[in-house]
Amino acid sequence: MHFDSFSDFLAMGGYAGYVWSAYGISALSLLILLWTSIRKSRRLAADIKNRIAREQRIKAAENLENTL
């Protein structure tokens, strides 16, 4: 589609409300998806780190118990 001016581009032939709201909703959805994915990934990494540390503490306690 060819537009004569920038204001015609923004007006989108009278459908600006639909077009720009669709772009806005899509961009917002993608940002929310990105944010939740990053948050979940960080939480999972922290859980794995905590689980590994707990297993190491348990093994250290078992080794200490075996030496007594």
Rank of each mutant, 00 (worst) to 15 (best):
L28T: 07
L10Q: 03
A45W: 06
L10W: 08
I58N: 07
A16G: 12
V19Q: 04
A61N: 10
L64K: 13
N63A: 12
K49A: 13
Y23A: 06
S26A: 14
L10C: 10
R57V: 11
I38S: 06
L28W: 09
S37Q: 13
S26C: 09
G17Q: 06
R57I: 09
Y15Q: 11
I38N: 05
G13Q: 12
R54D: 01
M1D: 09
A22F: 15
I32K: 05
L34Y: 04
K40M: 13
F9Y: 09
I32L: 12
L34I: 08
F6K: 03
A27D: 02
S7E: 07
E62W: 01
V19D: 00
S37T: 15
I52S: 01
L31R: 08
A27G: 07
R51H: 03
N66A: 09
R54Y: 08
T36D: 08
A22S: 15
R39V: 01
R42F: 12
S21G: 02
G24C: 05
K40Q: 15
L34K: 01
A27T: 10
L30H: 06
H2R: 15
I48H: 02
S5L: 02
G14N: 07
A53C: 03
I38M: 06
I38K: 13
I32Q: 02
L34Q: 00
S41D: 09
V19T: 03
S21A: 04
A11V: 00
G17W: 10
I32D: 00
M12S: 11
S26W: 10
R39D: 04
L68C: 02
M12N: 10
S37C: 10
I38E: 07
T67M: 14
L30Q: 06
S5E: 01
G24D: 06
G14T: 04
L31Y: 03
I48C: 01
L44H: 05
T36M: 08
L34P: 00
K49P: 06
S21K: 12
E65H: 06
G17T: 07
T67D: 11
L28Q: 03
S7V: 04
V19L: 01
I58D: 07
R42N: 12
E62H: 05
L68D: 05
G14C: 03
E65T: 09
A22E: 14
A45P: 01
D8I: 00
S29W: 11
Q56T: 07
F9G: 00
K49R: 15
A46N: 09
K40A: 09
E55M: 11
